[in-house]
Design a protein around this nucleic acid. Structure first.
Lengths: 214, 214
DNA sequence: AGCCCTTTTGAACACTGTTCAGAAGGCGTG
DNA sequence: CACGCCTTCTGAACAGTGTTCAAAAGGGCT
């Protein structure tokens, strides 16, 4: 019962990743287990440990695929002439992923490493570039802003977007009346960007930027 | 080995909730288990099922306590004369909780019910009042805004704040250089509120609200 | 003293991720 | 062709999880 050799090791890895994707998409996060993935593949559970270090490692590979497709779409939008429109398109991709592929999205953003281990470099690179893409648009939007201001702005804006997606994915929005996540995202982008780009081209300590300070 | 009767049923419930709080605060979410809670209480695991329906029910009671103390502090801030200052104070409470009590905060906001069950009404009431408190401040800030606008604004603003806290709690901010969560929260509130309160007192379809509309 | 009724438990069930000795099978060499 | 090697793969076990339930243990009442 060894070496059927129907597939090479990289093929098996891709097969396992795909199995997790469909399993999670179909049944949700709770049904994901090593034994179920192995069962669907037609192998014994222990075999998966020859392809990946452990379940966390397998999940990280699945998440890398998800992030890659998200980053690809965001990169494609970064070429738009209007940076505000580019950011809006990117935010919509982000939100759409959390809506259309909620379990896969949760697997990316709500999975925690066991025993508090650090995420490997090949994975951290992807999350890092997410913020970089946003920063690049902020630079186009307000070239006068300092790098520090751009970094803060990108993290604030995308952190805020992330929060809306989190609430959406967890069905926390229909409590006390429905709220349209799309409208929330648009509201966040429009209002935040408007005042951010309008006020960051002043000296940092200028308290009178809003007309009447305090 | 039955009926020591050292404590009444409500006392035991409070004891169990307290045990979970200290256990989670000390060891983190991963170490929380029925068996460990029972061990610390000096009882057999099965006894806990006479106090609570299941682990989810116990966790919900713990979370209700956490939410109550948060809501109390937010309520206290709602009396400030400046609604913008009140919202800022509330947001800082929210962030501080996610920083000083990260595991307890995660237990509240990242715990999902098993088998997708609905949260009970006595719990949903608390999460609902969180948004209501924010809406009340938005009403003071922009009395001319419609209820619809206030609801959208409150969810957008607090969803955004929530996202920053999520990133903070998951250590996703120090990727690619540290970002101060406090500065992010302040940035979000200042910029969003400034443009939100400045533009919501127009007719809904007014495209020229930002001076030059695209 | 005997009964009842609540409180509490031990043991079991069905899961989970992970490890590891050893089996199974393809491949190169004698 | 046969032998041995080496990779692939598995079965079984370990330690853990939430949950259930018959039965035991003990306090209170008649």
């Amino acid at each position: 019962m060894a070496r059927r050799n129907e597939h090479s090791k990289p093929e098996l890895r891709a097969l396992a990743i795909g199995t997790v994707r469909t399993l999670v998409a179909e049944q949700g996060l709770e049904k994901l287990s090593v034994r179920e993935v192995a069962r669907r593949l037609g192998y014994a559970p222990a075999m998966l440990y020859h392809l990946f270090d452990n379940l966390d490692d397998l999940i990280l590979h699945v998440n890398a695929d998800t992030l890659d497709s998200l980053l690809d779409r965001m990169d494609a939008a970064s070429g738009m002439e209007n940076p505000e429109a580019a950011l809006t398109a990117m935010a919509h991709y982000y939100l759409d992923l959390s809506r259309a592929q909620t379990p896969l999205w949760q697997l990316v953003f709500e999975h925690r490493m066991a025993n508090g281990a650090e995420v490997p470099a090949w994975y951290a690179r992807r999350t890092r570039s997410l913020f970089l893409i946003v920063e690049r648009q902020l630079q186009r939007l307000a070239p006068w802003a300092t790098e520090e201001e751009r970094r803060l702005g990108a993290r604030t804006l995308w952190g805020g977007l992330h929060g809306i997606c989190v609430l959406q994915a967890n069905n926390k929005l229909d409590v006390a009346g429905d709220a349209d996540p799309r409208a929330m995202v648009d509201s966040l982008l429009r209002h935040y960007l408007a005042d951010w780009s309008a006020t960051t081209n002043r000296s940092p300590g200028d308290a009178s930027r809003h007309g009447d300070g305090a």
